[in-house]
Every structure is written in structure tokens, then in C-alpha cells.
Simulated assay, not measured.
Amino acid sequence: MSDAHHTPPWRHRVEHVDTDASGVVHFSRYASLLETAALEELERRGAGLGALEEQRLDLRVRELRLSYRAAARFQDWLRLDARLEHVGPASLKLGVTVYREGSAPEPVLLAAGSLDMAVVNRESGEPTCIPLTLSAALKRSPSP
């Protein structure tokens, strides 16, 4: 499933805690940023963690892919564009692109990645099919 619908980006200002000693965002912080943007996208679609919890479901990351293009620095404003790329019977894949906003006339691509997540039973941890109500919510156009 490819999602052609545009949703508002998630923004993050780089904090000191995000950076290494030279003031550059540490590579490990990007995984957290991708996860936050992906979860915000699910929330916009009405299928966030609360909706999953009501169904006694949870998400487990099966694969994280990330390509770095340029460095972000302390106090940069980042724009994270998340999109739902695939809804399987018991899995989701979201893509996230990270840009620096501000000084350049156009946003600068910093990183691009994806999160492949399994939907599991909250108690047993076993993979579980996504209920039709949540599957329908995921496939609908997200709320702005």
C-alpha cells in the first residue's frame, strides 16, 4: 500500500541531549525520531498506541532501516515527514524522511528510513492479525 495522502509533518528542535560533544546529532537519536514521527502518523489515522491497547495489541519493531545524508546540529529545526507504506495482515511499514528547515531556501534532506513493525498480542507477544476496524482506520486518509 502506498500512501499518497499528505499529512502535516512532525517538527523537532535539536536539543543538547540529541548531540555529541561536537554539537552534531548523534546517529542513535535518529531511531527515536523516526519512531516518534511514525507513531504520530498512526495517531493521526486513529490507530495509535491507545487504539491498539484497547484491542489488547502492541507493536514490535522487526526492522529499522536508516540512511544518513547530512548532519543535524544543536538547535536546528527538523521536519519529519512520515507515511504509511504498507499494511499487512499483522504488520505495518512506515517510512520517515528527516529534513533540516530554516537557513537554506529549501529544506535539506538529512536522513530517510523505515520502520517495519509486527502487530502482536499484548500479553503473549504472538503476532496477531490487525482487527478490521483498525485496518480500515489505517487505510483511510489521515486527519490533519
Rank of each mutant, 00 (worst) to 15 (best):
G102S: 08
P89Q: 14
P127S: 14
T19N: 10
G48C: 09
V108S: 06
E63K: 13
P89H: 15
S67Q: 12
L49E: 11
L115T: 00
P107T: 01
A112Y: 07
A82E: 02
A90L: 01
L94R: 09
G102Y: 06
W77F: 11
C129S: 15
R45T: 04
V17W: 13
V108M: 09
E101N: 09
G113R: 05
E106R: 07
A70P: 02
G88K: 00
Y30K: 00
L66E: 00
R44V: 10
L132G: 07
E40A: 06
V61S: 08
M117P: 04
S22H: 15
Q75Y: 14
E15I: 06
P107R: 05
V24M: 07
Y68C: 02
L132F: 12
L78E: 05
L110E: 05
G102I: 09
L109A: 11
T133L: 15
L66R: 03
T36P: 09
E35H: 14
R122V: 09
A82F: 02
P105S: 15
L34T: 02
R29V: 08
L92R: 03
G23H: 08
L84C: 04
E41I: 06
A71K: 01
P89Y: 04
L109D: 14
D81H: 08
S124Y: 11
S135K: 09
A51R: 06
L39W: 02
V87C: 03
A47D: 01
P127G: 09
A38I: 07
R65N: 06
A72K: 05
P127Y: 00
P131E: 11
A31T: 11
E43I: 07
A21P: 08
E101T: 04
A72M: 05
Y99T: 00
A111Q: 03
V120H: 06
R62Q: 13
P107L: 08
D18P: 02
L42D: 00
E54V: 04
P131Q: 14
N121M: 11
D58G: 10
R73E: 14
V98W: 04
K93C: 10
E106L: 13
T97H: 07
R122D: 14
A104T: 07
H16R: 08
Q55C: 10
D18C: 07
E54G: 09
A112M: 10
L66H: 05
G95I: 00
R62W: 01
H26D: 13
R60W: 07
E35W: 04
G23D: 11
E15F: 13
V87T: 05
E15H: 13
S91R: 09
I130N: 00
P89L: 11
L49D: 12
P89M: 13
L78V: 08
G46P: 03
E54P: 04
T97S: 08
V108F: 01
L92F: 03
R56M: 09
L66S: 03
R45C: 05
E41Y: 01
V120L: 02
R44L: 13
F27W: 13
L110K: 02
T128L: 06
A51Y: 08
I130E: 00
L49F: 14
D76F: 00
S114C: 12
L92T: 04
E85D: 10
